[in-house]
Structure formats: C-alpha cells, structure tokens
Amino acid sequence: MTFSIMDFVIFGSERSMFFPPPTSSTAAEVDSLFYFILWVCIVFFIVIVGVMGYCLIRYRERPGVKAEPSASHNNILEVTWTVIPGIFVGVIFYWGFVAFLDLRQSPDESYEIQVEAKMWNWSFTYPNGHVDNVLHVPVDKPVRLVMTSVDVIHSLYVPAFRVKMDVLPGRYSHTWFEANTVGDYTLFCTEYCGTKHSEMLSKVVVHPSGEFEKWLEDAANFLERMTPVEAGEILYQRRGCAQCHSIDGSAKVGPTFLDAFGSEQSLMDGSTITVDENYIRESILEPQAKVRVGYRPVMPTYQGQLKDEEINALIAYIKSLSEGSQVNP
C-alpha cells in the first residue's frame, strides 16, 4: 500500500509514534485508515496554513494600499471546495464502514470466552468452566468475547488489538479479535465507572500455538492445588451436581448429599446398599445402574467427563457432609 510507504517516509522506524505495534488480524487495516486520514488532514492543513500565510504576507496592510476589489463570491469556486472535501470524506466514510464490519463480524469458528465486568475487575470464563481474571487466548485463532456487566457500564479496550466495546448491565455485547503475536498486552476499562475506574485493568496473555490448551488444562487443574474436599465442593458447584442434589437434607430431583455417606438405602429393585465410595463412583459413571427408591432414573452419565481425581474429590466432599454421623465399622 502506498500509505505504508508514506508511513515509512515520515514516521521512519517500525515503531510508530501513534500506535502500539499492531498485534491482531484487524489492527493493520485500522492503522492504514488512520494514516490515510492523517495524510488527508496534513494536506488540508498545509493548504489552510499556506493560503493564510500567503495572504498575511502578500496582503498585509501597507500605507496607501487599499484592499483590491475582488469578487465577493464565486459559485464555481465554492462548489469546488464543497465537492472536493466531500469526495475525500466519502472515501473515509466508506473505508471506515467496511473495516468496521470486519471488526464487528466474528468468524464462525471463533473460540468463545464469556466476560463479566464489575466494579472494578474483570472475569473471563472459558468453555471448560475455568474462570480467570486475566484474559488468556491462543495465538492466530479468532476469539469471540460475550460480555455483560453486573453493575454499571464498563468498556473493554485492548489498544494493541485496536479493539473496544462497551459492556452493559442487563444485556450481552460482543467483540472479537485474532491475536497474531505472542505476548502480554494491557486491557483497560474505558467507560468511566467510579472510584477505581483507572485501576480496572487486566492483561491479555497470548499463548504460543498449542500452549493455550495446555495452560487452560493446568489452570483448570485446581485439583492439585486444593484438598480433595475443597476441590470437590468447586466441582459440585461448577459441574451441575448442585442443580439436583442438595446439601441441606432436602430432596430435589436427586437425593441429598447430607449424611448420605455410610447410610443404608433401598433401591428400586428391592435390595439395599450401603452408600460407600464404590456406590458413589458407580452412580456418577452409570447413574441408572442402582437407582434409589423414590427417584426417577434421569441423571445423565458423567462417563468420560470427569477424571478419576475429580471423582475422588467429589467422593471426599460427599464424605465430608456426613461428618459426625454414624460411620460403618
């Protein structure tokens, strides 16, 4: 593009005085448009200053010299200086519009991350349920952000990607980007939101190809960082157990977990079992195998969805809810 050549002529080095280096797939186009407008502005400004300077010198007040009679209007001239800027403005509008559609239209195969803003922090939820306060993304892969706010209006802004979108309470807004350079970039809130608005900052970490998935797995791997009981509680909340199994003794769609461990229960086929580690594991992986009396066989299987350590953590958590009750010898 000619603009990049001009860019080189005036702004010389790789590092622009105007922008952080472009690190997303759409940034270069935004920058090109910016430089195009910049050049239009520079040319028009030089014309204005030039004409003004010429008149100031050539037609300054001199003794004995009066203003020369000249036309007080000239339709052709006036139409000309209406139409020529009009053409430039039309080009700028069209270019801005086309590039904007690219900024707003995320590709179908985008990786989706949920964003929740509140005074004064960000949280990012990944498809596997991992929640983080830093935005981690893979390089060279379109990422779509689905954003909402729990309080006032915020706005998510990553200058390096030339991406910004307001985050509103009570509705979802979207933006997307495809980071093409590995690194850490600052993420700002750009809608004034009160006391610590200027500290509502986060980071975007762009992971090298193939490492994002590994990071996500590690980050989600809280099992290793917590006691089994704590990890089990998180899984109970996050993986949907809580929808059907209470921990306060009340019966929901499924039986309560309170004081369940170690108790004797009768099954639909008339037999009885003791709720122990093996029964819980079996019920998670093959829920329909031994259904207790009074409950419908509606639980979906978690076969292949929970790893052994996660099952162990859940068992430990359920066990902990029976502390103090009679434990089988």
Partner: peptide, 21 residues
C-alpha cells in the same frame, strides 16, 4: 481546523473503535 480535521478520525467507524474514550 485541527479540531475539525481530527474529527474525521472519530467519524470513521473503524478508527473510532480504537480512539473512542
């Protein structure tokens, strides 16, 4: 003149996304 010309950057949609606020 400068104020008006720099308005072009903000009226153009793609650059406004970056420069807004």
């Amino acid at each position: 003149g400068i104020g008006g010309l720099t308005g072009l950057f903000l009226g153009a949609l793609a650059t406004d996304v970056h420069l807004h606020d």
